[in-house]
């Protein structure tokens, strides 16, 4: 059933595939980044094509930039620094990976994700102090110049004063849909000591006021302070509602989010399932390209696959248990 496709170096801690699953970026504990490629498009064996030192500290997360903007990855390191590396030819130099941008931050970057709309590339970064920043790329052909477009906290009601927040992890997932005239939106949750920050909120850009607004909160009244491990926004191939998975200490919740806002500008939400998850932390959740199957990994060391049956009931369809032999 399974087929090995690549071997990773010692010390590899994270990896990410690009948009077409033809390139793998792998970050290492020593701060080096490896890029693996296949020799031809029909082959599914990937070998290292470049390796470079991205940072002094170990890399904890890599994310590819959407392909409309080149072959580039963002790296988050253990010390919370964020940098963008790009593969390109400059002048007469050969093709190589170059540092395009290093973001100066006072607090640690926990997660970063890119969203594309008709004309721009946006990057959302979540910080250990509970802050959220949205950057916008100024020149579509240069990944050097980013403009801070917005800065806010992951709270519905900005009036309430928060204590000093300390966040362990954060998770961001953009709405993968990029239809014409659709405003960008993403969901963001924290795993922190500040309950107000934790619950995942859907943020949508209000073009008229050039402002990001929280349009939905995906937590039941009693669960709002729950620490959130992971969020995943499903591709929508024609459902009248959006589908978002949220993993917290209580399990994996599947939410339906309506598409038309009410008078207050809020979207209707409904929790349609609470799945047992991994009986511990959830590391990662990924929807397949149809949005029908959710794959998750977590502290029990298994990959679990979740689906809805014909009645709309969500259940675990299968699990994969890694074994050495």
């Amino acid at each position: 059933m399974e087929k090995p496709v690549a071997t990773l170096d010692r010390g590899t801690t994270c990896s990410a595939w690009n948009y077409c699953s033809e390139r793998l970026a792998a970050g290492s504990v020593d701060g080096s980044l490896s890029i693996l490629d296949s020799r031809d498009p029909s082959s599914s064996s990937f070998t290292r094509s470049s390796k470079f030192k991205a940072h002094e500290a170990g890399i904890v997360k890599v994310a590819w930039i959407p392909p409309e903007y080149g072959d580039a990855v963002a790296c988050i390191c253990e010390d919370g620094s964020l940098s963008i590396w790009e593969e390109l030819v400059e002048g007469t130099q050969p093709l190589q990976w170059k540092l395009c941008k290093s973001f100066k931050t006072s607090s640690k970057v926990l997660d970063v994700q890119f969203g594309v709309n008709q004309t721009s590339l946006r990057m959302v970064a979540a910080y250990s102090d509970g802050g959220v920043k949205v950057f916008e790329l100024i020149d579509p052909l240069e990944l050097k110049n980013w403009q801070l477009q917005a800065e806010f906290q992951n709270v519905i009601d900005s009036v309430s004063t928060l204590g000093k927040a300390s966040c362990l992890t954060a998770c961001i997932s953009w709405n993968p849909q990029r239809g014409e005239g659709q405003e960008s939106s993403f969901i963001l949750g924290f795993n922190s000591n500040t309950p107000q920050l934790n619950s995942p909120k859907v943020w949508e850009f209000d073009a008229a006021h050039q402002k990001w607004l929280p349009v939905a909160e995906l937590a039941s009244p009693g669960d709002k302070g729950d620490q959130v491990y992971s969020v995943a926004w499903a591709p929508n191939i024609g459902r009248p509602y959006e589908l978002i998975a949220v993993a917290s200490q209580k399990g994996i919740a599947i939410w339906h989010v309506g598409s038309t806002p009410d008078l207050d500008g809020r979207l209707s939400v409904e929790k349609v399932a609470l799945l047992p998850g991994h009986n511990s932390e959830v590391w990662q959740m990924e929807w397949d390209m149809s949005g029908m199957t959710l794959a998750t990994t977590g502290g029990d060391g298994l990959v679990r696959l979740w689906q809805s049956n014909l009645k709309g009931t969500w259940h675990e369809q299968a699990a994969l248990q890694p074994t050495a032999s």
Partner: peptide
């Protein structure tokens, strides 16, 4: 749910997994 073995051939203990859907029903 049925639990299927996922043979990876690593002798050392596993610290973490990362998943990514490729095209269609193929999961890496």
């Amino acid at each position: 749910a049925a639990v299927y073995p996922l043979h990876h051939g690593l002798k050392s203990p596993i610290s973490r997994l990362s998943i990514s859907w490729s095209r269609g029903n193929s999961l890496r």
